[in-house]
């Protein structure tokens, strides 16, 4: 029996069972591990954990206990999220981790935006995304939650401009986007709890019922509600789909769903502002990933080629700048 299997077996009573079966690794990010298993052979569960030995070194990453607390807070507001069953301390046998119920559905962005089995439900997805965001943004900022970063548009721009300048790249469209967005940065007049990475690929959709669960909470922070709205519209996450919201839906449906679920109405122009900031942010991140190839940290062809994807973000920015002119 592996150490993890043994540690989870000790945890089983807390999860409401006795046996852990079929434990398998699903994906391996550098900062997070995802494991699937079943409780007593009948209940499918998911374990998210920090790889052993990396706990608390990263600094900027949200602790998993914070992530789990936010998922529970979102559930309380009626947002579709997986049920969190247990939270494990960094010094427990499992390590820094939490266990949640597995949710049935699809997360591959391309299938959601383009596959035939999503054709019938697809027109409803943007509205459902708006509803989910309104509920996440309704999480009270009342001190019952762990401390979180707070960031305005100007602070986000400053963060990414520092990265961009440090790379020494000279790219006029990125310069123009920084200039344009800095000159029009909205104040953080109504800060809310943001998911922080709400986009096609991080949302579980079911082909019959639509939005099943909002996943990947590690970038949760406090900021402008239009930031989450703009990120789900950022063109890098459309996966070849023709529609602005995740490749699958229209702006009007996203905004209507948001209002229908009690969200304070957000003007489309403010969503487009954050959509542009989203493309700029992803463009800078592509440049940063290429830099890790150029300086020898990661010599893979994948890292080299991601530097050729900055231009995708730039052509998206170009369309938004042209629309603004």
């Amino acid at each position: 029996m592996s150490d993890l299997q043994a540690a989870l077996t000790d945890l089983a009573p807390q999860l409401g069972g006795t046996r852990i079966e079929g434990l398998r690794r699903l994906s391996g990010g550098a900062s997070q591990e995802t494991w699937a298993f079943s409780l007593d052979g009948e209940r499918p569960l998911i374990l998210r954990r920090k790889p052993p030995g990396t706990a608390s070194v990263t600094g900027t990453a949200t602790p998993l206990a914070t992530e789990a607390a936010l998922i529970r807070a979102a559930a309380k507001q009626g947002a579709p999220v997986p049920e969190v069953l247990a939270i494990c301390d960094p010094d427990s046998d499992v390590g820094e981790a939490y266990v949640m119920a597995a949710v049935e559905g699809e997360t591959l962005g391309k299938r959601i935006a383009r596959d035939d089995n999503f054709a019938a439900i697809r027109p409803k997805l943007a509205f459902q995304c708006g509803e989910a965001l309104a509920r996440i943004h309704a999480i009270p900022l009342d001190g019952s939650l762990p401390p979180l970063n707070r960031s305005s548009a100007l602070e986000e721009l400053a963060k990414y401009e520092t990265v961009y300048r440090s790379l020494g790249a000279r790219r006029p469209i990125l310069e123009a986007a920084f200039r344009y967005l800095k000159d029009r940065a909205p104040p953080l007049d109504r800060p809310v709890m943001l998911h922080g990475d709400f986009r096609n690929g991080n949302i579980m959709f079911h082909p019959e019922t639509g939005l099943a669960a909002v996943l990947d909470w590690e970038l949760v922070h406090i900021g402008d509600p239009a930031e989450d709205m703009g990120w789900v519209c950022t063109a890098s996450w459309r996966f070849g789909g023709q529609k602005p919201v995740g490749g699958f839906g229209d702006y009007a449906d996203l905004l209507a769903g948001y209002e229908a679920a009690g969200g304070t109405p957000i003007p489309l122009e403010r969503v487009l502002y954050w959509q542009m900031l989203g493309s700029l942010k992803w463009g800078v991140m592509c440049e940063g990933m290429y830099a890790s190839f150029a300086n020898g940290t990661d010599p893979s062809v994948e890292r080299a080629m991601i530097g050729r994807r900055t231009s995708e973000c730039e052509i998206d920015l170009m369309a938004l700048l042209e629309r603004a002119a």
Binding site: S311, E312, D316, M318, L321, A325
Partner: peptide, 27 residues
């Protein structure tokens, strides 16, 4: 940044670049 001549130059340049980098990109 929104000067029409600047926009025209950047647009022509980025179209040429994406035709090299990722000609299938929907953008």
């Amino acid at each position: 940044p929104l000067d029409p001549a600047v926009l025209a130059h950047m647009k022509a340049s980025i179209i040429d670049q994406v035709r090299i980098d990722q000609p299938q990109y929907s953008g």
